[in-house]
Amino acid sequence: MKRSDLQLIEDYLDGTISPRDLEVLNELLESDATARERFLSLATMDEGLQDLAVTPSIVTDCTGYNGGVYPVRSGSVQGTVGGTRALLSRPIVAAAAGLILGVFFTSAIWAATETGRQKILTLFHDSFEFGSPPVPVGGPVNPDAWGGDYVEISGATSGIEPIHGERMLRFLRADYEGKEDAVGYMSDIYRVIDLKKYSSRFADGNSVVAVEADFGSVPLDDADRFFANLSVYALAQVPTNTQSWQVLIGTPRRMEEVALASARRSRGLEGSPGMSWQKLSLEMRLPQETNYLLIGLHTGDRLAAGESGSETPPAVQFEGQFVDDVKVKLRRGI
């Protein structure tokens, strides 16, 4: 291979190739199987060198794990630039540690997932396949479970298939167990994510939290009747008992006062035949003082809200509104 062709490959792998040179490289790789072979060989070498540069410490960090085959590295290849590597520098090893510590369910794996290389850290991912069932007590009193209004974990039903896996969350009612006034047209469910162990990641105030979830509805005659809401609040402290949670969540003004930052996004749920899941996503810059995130998933009934005028309607029972695949990621701000 000519040095100029090799240079094109190196430039691509370095991320420094120009659009013009990319065209040339495209033509080369399309027509020349040997060039493709060389490209793959160099790409593998690049990945291998990055792997060697970031992983020397992992084996000794995972002394509790005795069942796996870790890619043991020689300490002699550790680099001299970049300082001490973070513990658990590879995602799968962090995931393994999550399992060892007995915190296993899907989101727990990814809560523990990070690498020295990545700029995006997935804090939480739940598609409702595992974990504690939601608790209808008005708020996320149990930090390991969703809490709020009456909801249930459901399989495929009424023609709606979970977007991932075999389960999803179904909104049932706009009230919770023991609610004094069983009124409302919104069903709300919340989850708390403890960020304290990640505080160094956003200590400079330059990180953004991104939240997304997929909402769906059974087909309805009035396709615009229901809407979905996604919310996130950055909090320094969270209530420690059920009643305090109920007061905080039930008093929007209080919530706004307490939150260090908040974001909310809404969209109509197109409950029509052949509907697909509808994604809601939002981003919020994370204040340095944040210790917890409060994630809220909500659905509302416009009809009930409109009919009731200024009065809050009796607690609505929902007719097939769902949410699935909730992700919360932390990334460096732009």
Binding site: Y12, L13, D14, G15, F39, L40, A43, T44, D46, E47, G48, Q50, D51, G67, G68, V69, Y70, P71, R90, P91, I92, V93, A95, A96, L99, T115, R117, Q118, K119, I120
Partner: peptide
């Protein structure tokens, strides 16, 4: 699962890179 992923992650990453994804953060994602 963890055992399989632990053992083969670097091969999967090399595959992703070989498919033309070069930015490390993109490979991570």
């Amino acid at each position: 699962f963890v055992r399989a992923l632990t053992r083969h992650e670097r091969v999967i990453r090399a595959y992703i890179r070989g498919a033309g994804i070069t930015r490390p953060e993109d490979v991570d994602e």
